[in-house]
């Protein structure tokens, strides 16, 4: 139901973020993304799924500008956000425009306290009073963080993930690029983190582009999904469509429907799909 509404909205309003046919090259030689396109409509959670090495993280880094820090470059295509082309900008400029990437592995500053990490999240802001108020707001979301006064490196994995999300909120982003929020967390915590992501989307109206290995959870939260393979999108559709797609069930959700198909069929199906 929500997915159908989302589709309707996506057709009328221009998307908040659109990635048009980009090609990304690392170190001038390694071609990682080959003609990737996707759209993120305002106010939605969009999932980006795929196997290891498909280029999901690279896609996020291309959007957030962090590609530059790894000697990567968008060599073709364009990324536009809110009607402006943003490829080639510095990561700092992109954060100021309202796009914030929560990197894979959380990457909190371990030798600082949780409070200092949150203040660091507001690096691009100047309003002192607003920052203090927002820290309290983050604590209201994650009361556990307030109790922890020691170094952030000693927080549990779940708390670190919450700190990473809280730090992202401090920048007042309109779009959060979330890379593997479930990584290294117990199933219970994964549920909690996804609950938070949905809450942020619902309450604060933050648009989220979610990269996940845990396809099942991601498709529960998202309204629309893209599936990547070898640096391009091979399949996309609403979360409902993807969840009921036999192919997606077999590859990403595990189990699939009914009995397992033979390896031979599987391979041929995969090959056909790539030529689509």
């Amino acid at each position: 139901m929500t997915a159908a509404m989302a589709e309707g909205a996506a057709e009328t309003a221009p998307p908040l973020l659109s990635v048009n046919n980009i090609e990304v090259v690392y170190n001038d030689v390694i071609l990682v993304l080959r003609g990737l396109s996707l759209e993120v409509p305002k106010g939605e959670i969009i999932a980006l799924l795929g196997a290891n090495g498909a280029g999901k993280s690279t896609t996020l880094k291309a959007i957030s500008g962090l590609l530059k820090t790894e000697d990567g470059e968008v060599t073709r295509g364009s990324i536009s956000y809110d009607g402006e082309t943003i490829n080639g900008l510095d990561p700092g400029a992109i954060v100021r425009k309202g796009i914030f990437q929560v990197m894979e592995g959380r990457r909190i500053i371990q030798d600082m306290t949780a409070h200092e990490n949150l203040r660091l999240g507001a690096h691009t802001r100047r309003d002192r009073a607003g920052i203090a108020a927002d820290i309290e707001r983050v604590y209201a979301y994650f009361p556990r963080l307030k109790e922890r006064t020691g170094l952030a490196g000693y927080l549990s994995g779940g708390e670190q993930q919450m700190l990473a999300i809280g730090r992202a909120l401090m920048a007042k982003p309109k779009l959060i690029l979330m890379d593997e929020p479930s990584m290294g967390l117990s199933p219970l915590l994964v549920r909690e983190v996804f609950g938070i992501i949905e809450q942020l989307n619902r309450d604060l109206g933050i648009t989220i582009l979610l990269v996940e290995q845990n396809a099942r959870m991601a498709l529960e939260a998202a309204s629309y999904g893209y599936i990547m393979e070898n640096g391009k999108v091979v399949l996309d559709g609403t979360a409902e469509q993807l969840k009921s797609n036999e192919d997606v069930k077999e590859f990403y959700l595990g189990g699939g429907g009914g009995e397992r198909r033979s390896f031979k069929n599987l391979k041929s199906f995969k090959r056909r799909k790539r030529w689509l």
Partner: peptide
């Protein structure tokens, strides 16, 4: 704070806009 963050993890600091 930005300097400490850069010292600890340069790329993470850049992702925060430092």
């Amino acid at each position: 704070l930005a300097m400490r963050a850069t010292a600890f993890d340069q790329q993470a600091a850049q992702s925060l806009g430092v």
